[in-house]
């Protein structure tokens, strides 16, 4: 399984400036990858192009055998007429039922499963939203700031759990946290503004997994590479 984009060019209708011009990159194998870049550079637009929510672009997206590509973002809400637990029960495919409890536990949400979505904190809401996406049938999931408002320790626990549970799935994690993407991601796609050539630079991340010791020097080196690429 591989994923590649070639010569993606896009601008919003009536806008004078291009968001992307001849953007190309390739993700060679499944894993936890990142899309990194300054605000306004087009990360969300790019995610929507990948998942087909934006269709008016030129260029080629090759998804290999991947059929279901999902995009989730941190402002999504669950309907308020039933509890989080009931909602999850209703929208989880039978094949994924066994994973639900494991994820709820790992995401620190066990005691909130009976609550309504609006009764949760922003961080808890984002975690619930992410769980329901993780329990769908998909080959690629784009997580747009999906762990915003979650404390660092819990975020780390969640990222490691996702990597453990879904090793053969493509993830594209959109984040502004350079330490996080450098530490946990396999490949980091650093997106730059449309005037820069190339518009995307791929940096190899440290791709840490559970129980692996952090090599601080290597991590700092990766962080520097990411920062240099984005500047």
């Amino acid at each position: 399984m591989r994923f590649s984009c070639r010569d993606i060019t896009f601008k919003y209708p009536d806008a004078s400036n291009y968001v992307f011009k001849n953007l190309s990159f390739e993700l060679t194998e499944p894993g936890f990858n990142a899309l990194f870049g300054p605000s306004g550079v087009g990360k969300t637009s790019f995610a929507k192009i990948i998942t087909g929510e934006i269709k008016e672009f030129s260029g080629e997206i090759s998804t290999d055998s991947m059929k279901i590509l999902l995009y989730s973002y941190n402002l999504e809400r669950l309907p308020g007429w039933s509890s989080v637990g009931k909602h999850l029960e209703k929208i989880i495919p039978l094949s994924q039922k066994s994973k639900k409890d494991e994820l709820v536990e790992a995401f620190g949400l066990k005691e909130f499963i009976g609550a309504r979505f609006s009764q949760l904190s922003l961080g808890q809401q984002n975690r619930v939203n992410l769980i329901r996406y993780l329990l769908q049938d998909f080959q690629m999931l784009i997580m747009d700031e999906s762990l915003a408002n979650v404390d660092e320790l819990t975020r780390e626990k969640i990222l490691l759990k996702i990597k453990d549970m879904f090793p053969q799935t493509f993830f594209l994690y959109i984040s502004h946290n350079v330490i996080e993407v450098s530490k946990f991601c396999k490949q980091i796609l650093v997106l730059r503004s449309a005037g820069k050539i190339p518009q995307v630079i791929t940096v190899e991340g440290e791709n840490y997994s559970t129980l692996q010791q952090v090599d601080k020097q290597k991590l700092e080196q990766t962080m520097l590479e990411v920062m240099n690429a984005s500047s």
Binding site: E53, Y73, E76
Partner: peptide, 12 residues
């Protein structure tokens, strides 16, 4: 949008 998005992208 923030509620409907999930149901649309998952075909529900």
């Amino acid at each position: 949008t923030e509620i409907e998005h999930f149901y649309k992208v998952t075909g529900r």
